[in-house]
């Protein structure tokens, strides 16, 4: 039936990392400590407390259901999964939202997201034949804003007062998007950023 295509994650590789489709059961215990840090999931809107191993396992399992794809981020230099990259795609609209969590704080500020997003986007546009990839981030997550702009995402809009920040105040969310043509132009080496 048209539009009922199911997307499947495949293993990808960058200079420093392997992106491996997650096996929820094997990841639960090695990553459970991520759920204890309230900073880790704040941009994804996941709960910041009340995690149990079982709840975390069910959450990880849900990240792979339907047309959701979830990669574990594994440094080639180590044996520990340091984060997750998420793609939730629609076969009908041929669009996907993306998100990332770097659970191991030692890897914050090490260029992980910028590096893995290149191959993720390549996979989305070239293998999955998507037409649009988009994401949203809190305005005070300035590193995330940088990552999106660095890759050429266009600031499409602002969701005003969309989320509750850690201090209880309301915060805007920025929406960034990239279209297939923009990705192609970037690959061909077009210069300039007018996003």
């Amino acid at each position: 039936m048209a539009g009922m295509e199911k997307f499947r994650a495949i293993e990808l590789e960058t200079e420093r990392f392997r992106l491996v489709p997650i096996r929820p059961l094997s990841l639960v215990l090695p990553t459970l400590h991520w759920t204890h840090d309230p900073d880790t999931f704040v941009d994804l809107g996941w709960r910041s407390s009340g995690w149990t191993a079982r709840r975390w396992w069910r959450h990880l399992r849900n990240l792979t259901r339907g047309s959701r794809m979830c990669h574990g981020i594994w440094p080639k230099s180590g044996r520990q999964c340091i984060g997750l990259h998420l793609v939730s795609a629609s076969a009908l609209s041929r669009a996907a939202t993306i998100g990332v969590v770097i659970g191991e704080k030692d890897w914050w500020g090490k260029g992980v997201v910028a590096e893995i997003r290149e191959v993720i986007l390549e996979d989305c546009f070239e293998r999955l034949k998507l037409e649009r990839v988009w994401a949203q981030t809190r305005i005070r997550n300035m590193a995330s804003v940088y990552n999106h702009r660095k890759l050429g995402f266009v600031h499409e809009g602002t969701l005003r007062s969309a989320v509750i920040a850690k201090d209880g105040t309301r915060e805007d969310m920025l929406v960034f998007g990239m279209l297939r043509a923009e990705w192609s132009a970037r690959r061909q080496g077009a210069t300039g950023d007018d996003g």
Binding site: I139, M142, V145, Y146, R149, H155, T158, R160, D172, L174, D193, G195
Partner: peptide, 9 residues
């Protein structure tokens, strides 16, 4: 502002 954070690069 949100616009500034989104656009200043």
């Amino acid at each position: 502002s949100s616009d500034a954070i989104a656009t200043v690069i």
